[in-house]
Design a protein around this nucleic acid. Structure first.
Lengths: 212, 212
DNA sequence: ATTACTAGAACACGAGTAA
DNA sequence: TTTACTCGTGTTCTAGTAA
């Protein structure tokens, strides 16, 4: 989809960011500079991509940004913030116990080889799980993504892993999002060459700062 | 021009925001997802619109964002900031003595009528001049613009005036940009129903906060 | 009043390739 | 190697209107 972030921003500014708002496609066309027809078509497209919820009726359209739509705006915001304020984004995260999924993935040779090649680290065979607030995900996704490709072994297929470079305790690390993760969306996994729990004495519920 | 702000952001992230950077259109195409040809064409277009400076040579392109290009990014940034952080933008401004241009404009009946209709104020027949830093202009331009139309009288023609709603000393006010102003770009003019110098004792060099 | 379909025009895209 | 032109194709636009 062609990034219709400009139209999303127009709709958000009309108030649809945290509540349903009654608009007309003509309102939107005036604010956006598109024709009424194009506003209508784009609205349908945004809804199809899950960025807004849309309830047309015979007096206009009720519109509200979805969580995902708001996420897109936040992502753009954090990109600009990092760029223009010239300082790193920081995430406050809480150490937690995960499912051990990451550990399983890291040990797969096809992934491991790519971690070394693409991420330039020889990862410790375990991950640190952290709980973050919702804006954090948008912050993470605002920095360049490195994709570690999936593969198939004789038993099953493995999906891509999206990796985002960061530092934790001044240590080069990566936040990893396996394509088909069963993690709740506010838990992230971090890999690096070190065992954070051992080297830095990390315990559950302890707060850590991640720099992007 | 179709807002190529996404490509501008890509270029800025490649380092072209406060210095010239040697790039190739292939670099840009990889980072942006467009083809090399499209990256080249868009670069030419950005330069034509004054958003970047571009020096192609036989080993690539040297690129740097112009002041205007950087302003576009800042504008988008402040739009998102205001929206997502749900608080007003604030500008620190220094009271200064202007040219008396604004006073002359306000008294023109065709403008005055529009001020009443479109801005819902009966402006005091004078303006407050303030000196602001450069980011402030981007902040101002990130909020909705109200256009007061120009006109012709028997002697000369008058251009449009761009008006931006704000509050100063809790007073509904508007920052006005006459289309053909001889103001330096870091001086703004504010109109409202009150005489700020009289009512609030404003003196030159005093700092004032403007909320957008 | 609305939304949104159809149709044709305008525009943007990238493959091929010249310079 | 570059940049960037031409040109064929596909996408996106808006005017006219149906519902």
């Amino acid at each position: 989809m062609k990034s219709n972030i400009d139209l999303l921003l127009v709709i958000a500014k009309l108030g649809a960011i945290d509540q349903k708002v009654s608009l007309t496609t003509t309102d939107i066309s005036k604010k956006s500079g598109f024709s009424q027809q194009t506003a209508s078509r784009k609205l349908i497209s945004l809804a199809k991509h899950g960025l807004i919820e849309r309830y047309p009726n015979n007096r206009g359209v009720e519109v509200e940004l979805t969580h995902k739509g708001k996420g897109h705006l936040k992502q753009k915001y954090f990109q600009l913030k990092k760029l223009l304020e010239k300082k790193k984004l920081v995430i406050k995260a809480v150490v937690s116990t995960g499912l051990g999924e990451g550990k399983y993935y890291i040990r797969k040779k096809d992934y491991y080889k790519q971690f070394i090649e693409k991420l330039k680290i020889k990862p410790f065979a375990g991950t640190l799980n952290l709980e973050v607030d919702n804006d954090s995900i948008a912050k993470i996704k605002s920095v360049p993504k490195i994709i570690v490709n999936g593969f198939k072994d004789q038993n099953r297929s493995f999906g891509n892993i999206d990796c985002y470079r960061c530092t934790l305790k001044n240590t080069l690390s990566y936040i990893i999002f396996p394509e088909r993760s069963s993690h709740p969306s506010d838990i992230i996994e971090v890999i690096s060459e070190v065992n954070f729990r051992q080297k830095f004495g990390f315990k559950d519920n302890q707060v850590a700062e991640i720099y992007l």
